[in-house]
Each structure stands twice: as C-alpha cells, then as structure tokens.
Nucleic acid binder design. Structure first.
Length: 380
RNA sequence: GCGGCUAUGGUGUAGAGGCAACACAGGAGCUUGUGGAGCUCUUAUCACGGGUUCGAUUCCCGUUAGCCGCC
C-alpha cells in the first residue's frame, strides 16, 4: 500500500507538492518518473539512475511478460531485486501496447498528433487493428519477436503485475487512437471501465493499484471517465490517451478530468513530458508523470540544457570544449566536454549514449525539483 | 623514357549517346505509458581542353593525374 500526503496546495493553480510513501521509500511530488520498460533505464545501472535524482521508475507488464516472463522475475525475488532498484517502482499494465502495437503501428502515428495528421484516416466503431484483436475480455497480441500468441486482459495483467511486485500497478486499459471517432472512443471507454472493475476484483496483493482515465479528446467522455474511475477504490489515478492537437488543448483536457478526480489521491499523467509540458501539467494538478523523452532523445544525440536542445552530433560541437551545460551539476557536465561527447556519439561509442542519458535524466530531475520549490514558495 | 589501363558527389562503386543511380560518410529536421530502431529532406556544372553529333558525362583526339608492366 501507499500513502499520499499533500504538503502544500498552490493558491495560483491546481499544483501541489506532496509525498507518496511506499514500502520502498518516499517520492516527493510533482515527480518525473523514469522509464525502465524492460527493467532498466536504457544504458544506466539502477545505481546510476538513482544518482540522477530519479525517485520512481516505471516498467512495463507487456514487455516483461514477453521477455523474460514474470516467472523469471518472481523467482529472482520480484522486479526490485531482479533489477537491483530498491526505490519506489510502478508497472504499466500493457494497455498502451494495445495502441502502440495496434492502430498506432497501422497508421504510423503516436498518441500525440502533429499538424494535419487528423486529416487522414479515421478509426470507426468495430474496426480492429491488423496485428492484434481486441475483445471484451482482453487483447490478443502477437509477439513481434517470435510470432507467438500472447493474451492480456485485466485479470492477466494484474496477475502478472502482482508477480512483478512493483509498489504501484496500473489498471489494464485500452489507449484509444487519437484518430478514433466518437463511437469507437465511447465503446473503447466502456471496455476500459469494465476492465477497471475487473482489475480491482483480481487485485489481491498489498500493492497499490491505480485506475486509468480515458475518453480521448471528447469532453463528455473524459468527464464521464474521470467521474467513474474516480469513484472506484483505487489507490490513485492515471490519465492516459491523447490530449488534443495542441499544448493548450492538453491543459484544457486535463482541467476537465482533474475536476472530477478526488483531490486526496495521487494523479499520474501517462507518457507526457516534453520539458515545456511540465509546468503546464503540474499547474493542472498532476503529481507524477513518465516520459521517454530524456532517455530516448539521449540515445539520438540530443541533450537538454538551460540553453535549449543540443544535437551533440552536429559539426559545430566537434571542437567545443565547454560542458553540455555549464549550469548543470551532473557528473557528465563536471567531467566531459561537448567535443568529447560529440566524438563518442559520432564514433557510435555506447558511452556517449550513457553519458547523455545520465545528463538528460539529471537535468529533468533538477528541472522538476525547481518546480517543487517554486510551488512551495508560492511562485507557481 | 616506352607501352597498357583508369579518371563519375567526401569515400567506394553503378550507369547509358537524350532527367546521373546505390551504399556509407556529411548537413538539416522528426521522435511524448521506449527498437540503441526508423523516417523525411539535403549534398555532383560525371578531371581539363578540343572534336563528331540536333544533343557527349557516355564516342574520338590531346593534356594532366594515378596505377601496372618494361628499360
């Protein structure tokens, strides 16, 4: 079980500073959650992840079920022991893979649309993705690695997550595509709500279980979902799916949802977190949020700094003796020059990916820490 | 010195008398509940000078350079 305390509620916005107490320690919120899909922050050891200031990690049920399988993890003593991360941990349910391996793959688009992407196809009621089949009981997947059949529904996801043993589990949901029409999104929401109750029924461990709000870009569905999920005995709540076509749209949609969720429980925003998104979502009352951006971009040579994004592979950094960010207190910035990092990146040395990942995570954590302080000081 | 062969983007290679192709490298972007993947752009007056031809990067001659032989 977890305990959530709000230490300070902003008067300027819905932002709040709080603490989530778990059996593996405390998380100060608002908090950026590091992504460790397969039980590792890619390129880093758990020890290094902790040194970036990361308080909480999120791993993935679908991916760990596919490899190495929950039996292996459980036999190792659970995911904390398996990956040697002794701090708070959560597991995503596999619901996002219903989208990313389904309609997301079919149409080659993510859950956040670019300009004009909505102009293309539309997903209608009853439509199925090519590579998987969504039923009332769950989702039939096909492993992309070896083609074998995998089935994940609410009961299966909770069973697996209980074997993984994270502090916080997420309900199994369907993340609908942003190009799904109203009818599809509504039917999907009905499924997700039924699965939410099934997850609660299947939940027998002492872990905390968070419900997930869906409803796409449709206000009535979002509000209905937040009211319904918010009324169930979850330990906290997550908000998933799309958030409109613009940054303003995202904040507005969060406002619809937050009003209907109980204030006293933690709220996690799934998969959002460009740097510029963070103050916006925190103002709306988001307590935790995970995002692949700092780690994923690091592996593509992008460093986040107080001067903006740096593409470290660019020719202009080849002889640049400055650190990535002279205002950054991380070990990468203390020791290495842009020139060296540019060289490593161009030479495809894996150290480049590791040093950039460490920096980006540290930078994001410092950024969010500053936001916590701003809320405490009444500035945000 | 003589003979032969070869000259196509940064590199390595295709090509055909009429839009110069491919790979890698380079440059600029994209990436939001993670493939370290991928994608989109972009980078060439086809060594130089003549000639034949409606048209030459392609055929012919010369120059230059490189490579291989021989003395």
């Amino acid at each position: 079980m977890i305990e959530f305390k709000i230490l300070k509620q902003s008067k300027k916005s819905r932002a709040r500073v709080g603490v989530i107490k778990t059996p593996h320690g405390e998380v100060e919120t608002p908090a950026y959650v590091g992504v460790a899909t397969l039980g590792a922050v890619k390129t880093l050891t758990a020890e290094q992840a902790e040194q970036t200031g990361t308080q909480l990690l999120i791993a993935n049920t679908f991916h760990l079920h596919e490899k190495p399988g929950e039996k292996i993890v459980k036999a190792a003593g659970g995911l904390h022991e398996f990956m040697q991360w002794h701090r708070p941990l959560m597991t995503d349910s596999g619901g996002f893979q219903v989208f990313s391996l389904g309609f997301g793959k079919d149409f080659g688009m993510g859950k956040v649309l670019k300009n004009n992407e909505r102009a293309g196809a539309e997903i209608k009621s009853g439509q199925q993705p090519k590579l998987l089949r969504i039923t009332d009981d769950g989702v039939h997947f096909r492993s992309l690695k070896d083609g074998r059949k995998l089935f994940l529904g609410p009961k299966e996801s909770i069973r697996i997550q209980q074997q993984l043993g994270a502090d916080i589990m997420l309900a199994f949901d369907e993340c609908p595509s942003p190009i799904a029409d109203y009818a599809y999104t509504k039917e999907s929401l009905v499924r997700t709500h039924r699965w939410a109750k099934d997850c609660l029924k299947a939940h027998t461990s002492k872990q905390s279980l968070f419900g997930i709000v869906q409803g796409g870009r449709f206000r009535d569905l979002r509000e209905e979902s937040a009211s319904f999920i918010g009324s169930l005995p979850f330990g906290g709540f997550a908000i998933g799916g799309e958030f409109g076509d613009s940054k303003k749209g995202m904040a507005e949609m969060l406002r619809w949802v937050m009003k209907k969720l109980p204030d006293e429980k933690p709220r996690h925003l799934l998969g959002i977190g460009y740097l510029e998104d963070i103050p916006r979502i925190v103002r709306e009352g988001v307590d935790t949020f995970d995002c692949i951006v700092p780690t994923h971009y690091a592996r593509h040579g992008v460093a986040f700094t107080s001067e903006g994004k740096l593409h470290i592979g660019q020719a202009r950094f080849a002889a640049d003796q400055k650190p990535l960010d002279k205002k950054c207190a991380c070990s990468t910035c203390a020791l290495y020059s842009r020139s060296y990092l540019a060289h490593l990146f161009r030479a495809k040395e894996i150290n480049a990916l590791q040093l950039l990942t460490f920096h980006n995570l540290f930078f994001f954590q410092a950024y969010v820490k500053k936001i916590r302080e701003d809320i405490k000081k009444g500035k945000l």
